[in-house]
Design a protein around this nucleic acid. Sequence first.
RNA 1: GCCCUAGUGGCUUAGCCGGUAGAGCGAUGCCUUGGUAAGGCAUAGAUCGGGGGUUCGAAUCCCCCCUGGGGCUCCA
Length: 610
Amino acid sequence: MRILLIHSDYLRYKTKSKTKIAEKIEDEKKGGEFDNALVVFTAVEREDEKDADNIIESAVSEIMNVSAQVKPDNVIIYPYAHLSSSLSSPDAAKNILKGMESKLKEKDVSVSRIPFGWYKSFEISCKGHPLSELSRTITVKPKEEEKAEEEPSKWYILSKGELHDPEGYEYENEDLRKLMLYELGKMESSGEEPPHVKLMREKGLSDYEPSAHVGHLRWYPKGRLIRDLLSDYVYNLVTEYGAMPVETPIMYDLADEAIRTHADKFGERQYRMGTKKELMLRFACCFGAFRILSDSFLTWKNLPVGLYELSTYSFRLEKRGEVVGLKRLRGFTMPDFHSVCRDIPQSMEEFERQITMCMQTGDDLNVNYEVIFRATQDFFDENKEWMYKAAEKVGKPMLLEILPRRKHYWISKMDFAAIDYLGRPIENPTIQIDVESAERFDINYINEKEEEEYPIIIHCSPTGSIERVIGSLLEKTAIELREDPKKMPMLPVWLSPIQVRVIPIAERHFDFALSLAEYLKDSNIRVDVDERSETVGKKIRNAGKEWVPYTIVIGDNELGKEQVTVNIRETNEKVLMDKDELIARIHAEVKGMPVRKLPLPVKLSKRVNF
RNA sequence: GCCCUAGUGGCUUAGCCGGUAGAGCGAUGCCUUGGUAAGGCAUAGAUCGGGGGUUCGAAUCCCCCCUGGGGCUCCA
């Protein structure tokens, strides 16, 4: 809404002729004269239709503010379309103008509203003092005020079916204490930058892309490989759990009402496109999955049904200053698993299974998660026993948040967070029980009585975003190094872009080195050969900088021999072993994990330094 | 969006009460053909984040903007 406020000695008007949208009026409204009047020329805009009450309230409070200063005898609401190029519908405008009139009347203001939709002549005499001409743009107020009024959540530590006060609790686990401090806003900051930002660039994984929007990364071959391996990992995991992988579009038409409502819930943090059709970029895979589900014929016999998609990418227009390294991006890749359940009890069963699944990713990735369990007060009161039981699946104390009432689409959720080098959480896996979306997207199933029913939907990301997983792994190396400066930082062997480096000493060792590499490669090991003319010392150092887990030096002593000396990064030992022993060792370390080929030239002399 | 802080070859940085950029790593070339975390020499590489201003003269002082990092806020 746009308003122009004129404090006048007098306003006179007369209606001349009707337009198509004219409101019906009594004769006495066909003209008038007001002295000492604050005239509020008002244009109601399209935006205002979304939340008329809010706009009326804001406009009235603005008018009251000005009135308090200039003290008019009359307030006149004067419809004036020419203040905006994006007008609302005439009906909406009339309603809002009437709303303003009655709100002002309630406040005992002498208010008159000039007829809408008439051609009018008018004469105004502006007083000309500093406050006599003001203009204001009134937008839907962000829910700050509501939020301030909102009751705060209750926080507990939940341990073995007992609730404790988070402040007084004796933490055995430092990470959980840090998570509590952060969530309750009591974290003190050291002002450092998280180490993973430097590491991701230094190790040639990824970097900022200055030619894109802030928060969108470029990925180099090594980083791309790690992303792919993690993607394969989650794919295998969720299909084990019965999910069916799908792929859906990344952009959606906001003309679809369900899409629009779901999108609007997310607020301003969306990429919207100013194309002829109003389109948005997805911020999660919900849209596509829900549309598939609403077009599917589901019966009680199918349920629970799981759809899985890896969102390359999801887009969130995070505010400036919120985007950080791999922790918070505007374009990110998120495994998104939606299960459709018959009812709350079945969703609780699924929830438990998914806790197991999320915990497993922590084990497999070797990342420690701390947990926040959240629920609405209602859900907690009705399902206390179940929540305590579900919490036991995690097997350690966790933070519990009880929200006074449902604020979002979920009634209960569990968030798993890794703690970074600076003691702040990196939100990773999450599980949420959604009680709203089925109805909104018209997803239903046929129950035993052959009736249509809305199911409950669980959202689950078993690892959280792939970028955050990589961030957590990098942070972990920095934490370990801080705790033990002798510790060699590295990635798990299955994720190491280069697993074995072969270093020939002189040219006469090249052939042997290359054939050794070939042999290892045939056993699905990512191996390369540093045949540059550098000293052995330097090549060893380079391999260390690249975090290569196994390094083999080939010289005269090794030529034609079965056994080679292997430098093991993890233990910093040199071990004489057979090449098949090395293969067996690596295979044991990467057991059950995805395998991908080396995405780089085998010879280091051919390699590009990103 | 607000507050604080930073931006100098690909990377790490010196210079910063004004006089027109210096190094290390990396890259390239030559020498060295070597045994476990930097061998030697040489060469190339910088509109000092961008724009504007002050000045005879600006990396240096002033203003605006962009980007990084931190904080607030936010992360359905």
